[in-house]
C-alpha cells in the first residue's frame, strides 16, 4: 500500500473508532467508574510535569522577551507578552505534547499488550465492545482533563514569568500583573480552552487506535507505542495551526 492510501485507511479507521465511541456514550453500561479512574491517572498524574513545563516556559519567555521590550521601552507590556503567547499557543500545545508522551504512550502500550495477549479477543468473546469499555473512558478522560491541565500550565507559566521579571529584571510586580490583566481577552481564554479539548480527542483516538491495531507480538507493542506518540504529537502541532486560523476567523485578529 502506498503512503497516501495507508493514511486514508488509518483516517477512516480512526473515524470509525470515533463513531463507535460516540455511539457507546448513548448506551448502557457507561463505565463511569473507569472514566473517573482514568481522569485520576491522566489528570492528577500529569499535573506535576505539566506544571513544571508551564513554569519554566513562562520563565524562558520573559527571559528572552524582556531585553527586547526594554530596548523599545515597553517593559510594562512584559506581562501581556507572556500571557498571550502562553494562553493562546504554548500552554495548550506544550501541555498536549507532554500528555501525548506520558499518557498516549501508556494507552497504546496497554491496549497493545492486551491485543498481543489475546485479552481484547477475550473481551469481545465475553460480549463487551472494546471501543466502549476501553476507548470511550480514556478519550473522555483526556478531553476533560487536558483543558484543566492546560489551565494549570498557563497559571504556572504566568507565575514563572512574574518571578523572572521581578527577581531577574527587577520589574515591579504590580506593573506585571496589571499588564497581564489588560493583555488577556476573554477570546484568548476561550480559544485556549477549545484547543486542548480538540487535542484531547486527537491524542486519545490516535493512541487507542494504534494500540488496538497492534500486530506482531511484543515488538509490535513497541512500534505502536512509538507511532502513537509521534503521530499524535505531529497531529497536535498541525491541528494547532488550523485551529488558530479558525479561531482568528471567529474572534478577529486581536493582537495588542
Amino acid at each position: 500500500m502506498n503512503p497516501l492510501s495507508r493514511f486514508l485507511v488509518e483516517l477512516q479507521d480512526i473515524t470509525f473508532l470515533f463513531w463507535r465511541m460516540l455511539r457507546g456514550l448513548r448506551k448502557q453500561p457507561r463505565y463511569f467508574d473507569e472514566m473517573v479512574r482514568h481522569m485520576d491517572s491522566i489528570g492528577v498524574g500529569s499535573l506535576a510535569i505539566v506544571s513544571l513545563t508551564g513554569f519554566f516556559t513562562g520563565c524562558v519567555l520573559i527571559l528572552q522577551a524582556y531585553p527586547t521590550l526594554e530596548y523599545y521601552g515597553a517593559q510594562s507590556s512584559a506581562g501581556q507578552s507572556v500571557a498571550i503567547t502562553l494562553i493562546r499557543e504554548l500552554g495548550p500545545v506544550l501541555c498536549a505534547l507532554m500528555v501525548a508522551g506520558r499518557v498516549g504512550s501508556a494507552i497504546s502500550a496497554e491496549l497493545g499488550s492486551m491485543v498481543v495477549s489475546q485479552q481484547i479477543d477475550a473481551m469481545r468473546a465475553l460480549g463487551t465492545s472494546p471501543a466502549r469499555k476501553l476507548v470511550t473512558p480514556r478519550v473522555i478522560a483526556l478531553v476533560v482533563t487536558l483543558p484543566l491541565l492546560t489551565v494549570a500550565a498557563d497559571i504556572f507559566g504566568l507565575v514563572g514569568g512574574g518571578v523572572i521579571a521581578r527577581y531577574l529584571y527587577g520589574l515591579d510586580a504590580n506593573s506585571y500583573i496589571t499588564s497581564l490583566r489588560n493583555g488577556i481577552t476573554i477570546q484568548d481564554i476561550i480559544g485556549g480552552i477549545i484547543k486542548p479539548i480538540v487535542f484531547g480527542f486527537i491524542i486519545g483516538l490516535i493512541s487507542c487506535h494504534k494500540g488496538l491495531t497492534t500486530q506482531g507480538g511484543t515488538v509490535g507493542v513497541g512500534k505502536s507505542t512509538t507511532d502513537a506518540v509521534v503521530l499524535s504529537s505531529i497531529t497536535v502541532i498541525i491541528a494547532d495551526f488550523f485551529l488558530s486560523k479558525v479561531l482568528q476567523g471567529f474572534f478577529g485578529n486581536t493582537l495588542f
Binding site: Q118, Q119, A122, M123, A125, G127, S129
Partner: peptide, 23 residues
Amino acid sequence: DEQELTEIRKKIGMVFQEGALFD
C-alpha cells in the same frame, strides 16, 4: 454486525489456548 455478534457471543463460552485472563 459487531452488535449482533455481541448478542450471539453471550451464549458461547470460550476457553482460550493461552488463558487470555485480564491481567
